[in-house]
């Protein structure tokens, strides 16, 4: 088949298509499903008893706010990266909140180390939040995957990594509302660390998670 014949075939069999919504609009769709799910999970477990006290603590507020903003910006960047021709600087948007999240968690560890040395370090072994973060972030992750698969991720590793970061960071922020007793070390290793680890894992399997018939080699 030569190229002219192919053009005739493609244009002759053309059917109307539904345009992909903008990344902002798809982010809205993601939130419309994810927020009620996370609210239901929080309602099921109940707010942590010391929530009012935590909300008066600047460090707690900054850590969870930066986690939430990291989640939202990473989700937007993932959706933007599923449209060919996106600007690569758009992908840097989650970098600032993610750095602040990491810095605030690190600062918490520093303060805790100054106050009580390494004594709280063993809390990492007792308080493993990975299953809770995965549980909280599971539905947002699945919804994001469905939305991303409607687009065309030309760099699926990057898109999947951003999507996993979005789900894990959002799950971590929601988790802090109903899960208590986390030390700064736990926040750094299990919250920030889980988000980074899940993001790296998703990047490895990106091409399998986000295969679109048009993105694979047709011939």
């Amino acid at each position: 088949m030569n190229t002219d014949q192919l053009i005739q075939e493609l244009s002759g069999s053309l059917a109307p298509v539904k345009r992909l919504a903008s990344p902002g609009r798809r982010l809205g769709q993601w939130l419309a499903v994810s927020v009620p799910v996370l609210a239901a999970i929080t309602a099921f477990f109940g707010f942590r008893p010391d929530l009012a006290q935590c909300l008066a603590d600047n460090r707690f507020v900054i850590q969870n706010l930066t986690a939430l903003v990291t989640g939202l910006t990473a989700a937007w960047a993932a959706l933007a990266s599923s449209v060919p021709g996106f600007k690569s600087r758009q992908l840097l948007v989650p970098l600032a909140p993610a750095t602040l999240w990491l810095a605030s968690a690190g600062e918490g560890c520093w303060a805790e180390w100054q106050a009580s040395g390494w004594s709280n370090l063993e809390s990492i072994l007792h308080q493993k939040c990975l299953p809770e973060i995965v549980g909280s972030g599971l539905v947002p992750a699945l919804v994001l995957m469905v939305l991303l698969r409607r687009g065309l991720a030309l760099n699926p590793s990057l898109t999947a990594g951003l999507a996993a970061l979005a789900a894990a960071a959002t799950g971590s922020a929601a988790l802090s509302l109903f899960h208590d007793g986390d030390t700064a070390w736990v926040t750094l290793t299990w919250h920030v660390g889980s988000a980074a680890g899940l993001s790296a894992l998703a990047s490895v399997f990106g091409s399998r998670l986000l295969t679109h018939p048009a993105s694979s080699r047709p011939i």
Partner: peptide
């Protein structure tokens, strides 16, 4: 070129006018 046209065809819904 043919692969490009086929990819474009499969991805035409992603173009934002």
């Amino acid at each position: 070129v043919q692969e490009i046209l086929l990819t474009l065809h499969g991805a035409r819904h992603t173009y934002d006018p």
